[in-house]
Design a protein around this nucleic acid. Structure first.
Lengths: 210, 210
DNA sequence: GTCTATATTTTGATAGAC
DNA sequence: GTCTATCAAAATATAGAC
């Protein structure tokens, strides 16, 4: 499956199915891990210098892999996106399963505070139109909202959504609840259990509970 | 009521009840207004230079009134705090009145996007312990949470809160809903009416509605 | 109370050697 | 692929004249 290639130095290196070099790939991952931690306190608050130091290389070395700060941010966001999409089936046939997946995701997130910080801080920061992740978060919220709207539409069809609430409103409220709980949790982790609180909210929304 | 004082230049100036000079007071207000707009996109993203330019003075001139960037941020937050406390009676005898006040506040906030941006961005940013407003937001959330908990406790005493929900959980969920709606509203103002959505949430929480 | 000038850091990014 | 050296810009803050 892997191919071998000659490099400038004459050393042979592994190349993966995507065409990237093994060393590059490992380094890129290390950079992305460090960037996640640094950007967790905000895009503006974090510096390339800090990221480079954590990964043990120079800024120029880092910029060889990601040509600018905003490119690096995008890469971090897309990586984390892939991982969290794998945790929740947003298009499950059983709508309640999707909602239980959200609760499970909330519970999982409590074990990786860095990821929660990243999304919480960046989503708020990115509401500024000039922010490098502005369009990313607009698209992401649109996608989650529409996926959840379909989920709640299924529940309505089954007569299982609390009366008087539209699928769209339920979707908006659910996302708002998840986001808002994160802020309080990050400010003081003893104040709230995100997963329990989300579950309680959804149980109040779905007849018979989720 | 006002007293008059001699200045170094021999010019007489008005002094208000708090002892500040009229010119200082007006300048300070102009600075605070500009700072609100600039800090709306985040503490780190905003610069003193930008604020100084907007208010039409030099950075040194600005720093005569607020001795550092973080002092200025604190002043902005405290000012806005005073104003929003005036809009909602968090300790009203009628619990539903407090909740209706929250909805009214949400409706009012939609007319001053800058304030919403400020609180939304800074509360998320300030979850980082090193942030200059970290303690401020911890205290603020504690206070709001405890006030709302008392409000919901009154509703429980009247048998008007949805069964199975504690006053504390209701308080946490209400705050989360307000915060979360702000993010979605800031990213796309056509997506959600913050006040309507909050009202719907509270109507689902309180038997008979608010 | 406001300005000019300046000190001091820090930042994102590039050029070019190896 | 990584480094050193360097740049240019921007930031916060201070000193001192007026």
């Amino acid at each position: 499956m892997n191919t071998m290639t000659k490099t400038a130095t004459g050393v042979r290196k592994r190349r993966g199915p995507r065409g990237e070099y093994a060393k590059s790939s490992a380094t890129r991952e290390a950079i992305l891990d460090a960037a996640l931690e640094v950007f967790a306190s905000g895009y503006n608050a974090g510096s390339l210098r800090d990221i480079a130091t954590r990964v043990g290389m120079s800024e120029a070395g880092l910029l060889h892999h990601f040509k600018s700060k905003s490119v690096l941010l995008s890469a971090v966001l897309e990586l984390k996106d892939d991982r969290s999409r794998a945790l929740v089936d947003m298009a499950a046939q059983d709508a309640a399963e999707t909602l239980r997946g959200l609760v499970a995701l909330a519970r999982h997130n409590a074990s990786v505070p860095g990821v929660v910080e990243l999304y919480c801080t960046l989503s708020a920061e990115s509401t500024a139109p000039a922010h490098p992740a502005h369009e990313y978060f607009q698209r992401r919220y649109d996608w989650v909202r529409e996926s959840l709207e379909r989920t709640f539409a299924r529940l309505i069809a089954e007569g299982r959504l609390a009366p008087g609430i539209s699928a769209r409103r339920a979707a908006i409220a659910t996302i708002a609840m998840m986001d808002g709980l994160q802020v309080q949790w990050l400010l003081d982790r003893d104040v709230v259990d995100m997963a329990d609180a989300l579950q309680e909210f959804l149980d109040g929304l779905v007849i018979g509970g989720i």
